[in-house]
Amino acid sequence: MNIYSVRLVNGTSLCSGRLEVRSTQSNQSTQSTQSNQSTQWGSSVCEEDFDQQDAEVVCRELGCGAPSVLQGALYGEVEAPMWTKEFQCGGHESALLDCRSSGSERNTCSPGKAVGLTCSEPVRLVGGASRCAGTLEVKHQGDWRPVAGSVWTLKAAAVVCRDLDCGSAVSTERRYESSRRKVWWIDSDCVQSASPLRECVTSPSASSSSLDLTCSDLLLQPNISMDGVSEAQQQGAEVFV
């Protein structure tokens, strides 16, 4: 089980929420002096002491994709201890507490300025006509691998399309190759239960099959112009028929 120095709370998954840092005794407020598990969490970070490189490190530490939103109070404001020093990450560190921090300390933070962060889910479709179609790959334990598993329904595939901001699911297809390769095994029933996809990975294995998905944003969207000429758009390109 991974032990994180950070977490995102009040979001929709482990990859989004208000940033909290697991504090040591010296970093906690004087009102929070116990060393049990519950009081180690709770130090929020002021937006002024946090930048894009810091966000990249947090997302990496949590096993999520790249940061997509960084905004103060996006996931609620709390009366909680503040982390008192500015993080100075280079962006390559594996954990936030591995980063250097400033020597000066901050005693206050303006209301609405606690860091809220959204990281992308570590999911992608590769080898298709666009980012919204192709072989499903998931990043787990630091490795991108294709997905294999039980038969996937459109309901399960819809979770992936939603995470990728690709509309709804159109089709799923199991693809076979001549050789076996390392894959992540994922049960579609877990995905349908609204659990984050990467939390549904049960075990690594070797398989000759993988899963191809197509989401609706790939499809041609017909539009009728004023002069009666039909147009279709696909991923920003225009096709006249």
Score class of each variant (00 low, 15 high):
212 D>T: 03
148 A>H: 04
99 C>L: 11
87 F>L: 08
29 S>N: 11
201 V>M: 09
130 S>R: 12
19 L>E: 05
86 E>A: 14
156 A>M: 08
68 S>H: 04
160 V>I: 15
114 A>P: 03
213 L>I: 15
31 Q>L: 15
64 C>T: 09
103 G>M: 05
159 V>M: 12
144 W>Q: 03
197 L>K: 01
185 W>C: 00
116 G>S: 09
204 P>H: 00
73 A>Q: 07
123 V>I: 15
89 C>W: 07
96 L>M: 07
33 T>I: 08
174 R>T: 14
182 K>V: 02
141 Q>A: 14
58 V>G: 01
107 N>A: 06
177 E>M: 08
151 V>E: 13
133 A>H: 10
238 E>N: 10
138 V>Q: 00
97 L>H: 08
220 L>M: 06
191 V>A: 00
232 A>P: 00
19 L>T: 10
109 C>Y: 06
122 P>C: 13
73 A>M: 05
180 R>K: 12
168 S>A: 14
192 Q>I: 05
215 C>A: 08
67 P>N: 08
181 R>P: 01
76 G>E: 05
230 S>W: 07
193 S>I: 01
131 R>Q: 14
201 V>K: 03
160 V>Q: 00
98 D>T: 11
31 Q>N: 12
160 V>A: 04
182 K>A: 12
222 P>G: 03
97 L>Y: 02
144 W>D: 01
28 Q>T: 09
28 Q>F: 02
120 S>A: 15
34 Q>S: 15
102 S>K: 04
196 P>C: 11
205 S>T: 14
78 V>P: 01
147 V>L: 00
91 G>Q: 06
143 D>S: 12
26 S>H: 11
172 T>W: 02
31 Q>T: 13
179 S>R: 14
29 S>A: 13
39 T>H: 11
39 T>K: 11
164 L>R: 02
200 C>G: 05
66 A>R: 13
4 Y>M: 07
228 G>I: 06
96 L>Q: 02
25 Q>H: 07
206 A>R: 01
105 E>R: 11
217 D>H: 14
29 S>F: 03
20 E>S: 09
190 C>Y: 00
17 G>T: 07
200 C>W: 09
214 T>F: 00
146 P>T: 03
